[in-house]
């Protein structure tokens, strides 16, 4: 089908470098590969592009039936969203930010020392501990919904963001332990030995070696925990109400709306997704590691 002969794409240099980790050469694709890839990419991004475009249209253009690609653009939906007649979106956005940021910090505070004990100076049966952490992510969270709800109710923490922070910390801690362990395992052991000979304690080692050297890994871990917390709906919907409701809970108020409001919905969806899009693009290279719970690098 293509004109490229497979043999010509493999004319490797005659003298191969002897280093085992030489830069990988990707198989060169034909023009058809490129076109197909662009077409697939466009198909996948289309709903998001359409959502962004619709959010900049008037309700009349958005609900016109035939796609109004070149309709005039307006920011009215965004200004309506933030200061229109509807519910104020700021409290839920601030709640989401609070829950996501504080739970992510708590996750890192717990996960970094744990990862240290599981990689640098591994304790006995450290793989068992790793797989215990992983197994907590394997079974449906919904099975714990009722007891968690009842506990929140009995302790007066219903509709309280603190409780949600604890839930999200538990939800993300196993992922963070797995990710941080693989980042810490990349630090040369000699550094830790030298620090110990110099009499550095655990806190000093964590502060002076672990944190600076694993900073990029910590950042990626933090971004991924942030995304998962920001996205969570089931527990937020169950445990919060008018006070501590998060941005996804706020969005569910649009589920049953009627009439001309598609542009408004699109603007709301874009605003709520923006932090995740930014965090996700920033963590793109480590995304697969977080999504596979650390199993794939």
């Amino acid at each position: 089908m293509t004109t490229t002969d497979p043999a010509t794409t493999n004319d490797a240099p005659v003298t191969r470098p002897t280093a085992t980790r030489r830069p990988r050469r990707r198989p060169r694709g034909s023009a058809i590969t490129g076109l197909a890839a662009w077409a697939v990419g466009f198909t996948f991004v289309l709903p998001v592009l359409w959502m962004a475009l619709t959010s900049l249209h008037t309700e009349a253009d958005a609900g016109a039936g035939r796609p109004q690609v070149f309709a005039s653009l307006t920011f009215a939906n965004y200004s309506d969203f933030f200061s229109g007649g509807g519910a104020d979106p700021w409290p839920p956005i601030i709640n989401s930010a609070t829950a996501a940021i504080l739970s992510t910090l708590l996750v890192l505070v717990l996960a970094v020392p744990a990862a240290y004990a599981l990689s640098v100076k591994p304790i006995e049966k450290w793989t068992d501990v790793m797989f215990f952490f992983l197994s907590t992510k394997m079974l449906p969270m919904v099975a714990g919904l009722l007891p968690v709800y009842l506990i929140a109710q009995k302790t007066g923490l219903l509709d309280n963001i603190t409780f949600l922070i604890l839930i999200y910390t538990a939800m993300n801690l196993p992922i963070a332990v797995w990710m941080m362990r693989s980042f810490l395992a990349e630090i040369p052991p000699a550094l830790f030995e030298a620090a110990e000979i110099d009499g550095a304690g655990l806190v000093t080692i964590l502060r002076k070696i672990v944190v600076p050297l694993s900073a990029p890994g910590m950042a990626a871990t933090a971004l991924i925990c942030f995304i998962f917390s920001w996205n969570e709906l089931l527990f937020a919907k169950s445990l919060t109400g008018t006070v501590a409701g998060t941005a996804p809970v706020f969005l569910t108020s649009f589920v049953t709306s009627q009439g001309l409001f598609l542009a408004q919905v699109s603007a709301a969806a874009i605003v709520v997704s923006l932090p995740v899009l930014i965090a996700g693009f920033a963590a793109q290279d480590k995304l697969v590691q977080g999504l596979s719970l650390g199993a794939v690098k």
């Binding site: 890839a37 662009w38 697939v40 990419g41 466009f42 996948f44 991004v45 709903p47 998001v48 359409w50 959502m51 619709t54 958005a62 995304i227 920001w230 996205n231 709906l233 941005a247 996804p248 969005l251 569910t252 649009f254 589920v255 409001f261 598609l262 919905v265 699109s266 709301a268 969806a269 874009i270 709520v272 997704s273 995740v276 899009l277 965090a279 996700g280 693009f281 793109q284 995304l287 999504l291």
Partner: peptide, 23 residues
């Protein structure tokens, strides 16, 4: 193209579902 492919995963799931429903 890789970034375009990843994008659906970086839209808040409720937001994506909401837009699929209405848009």
């Amino acid at each position: 193209v890789r970034t375009m492919i990843i994008t659906p995963f970086l839209v808040v799931p409720v937001a994506a579902a909401l837009f699929f429903k209405h848009g």
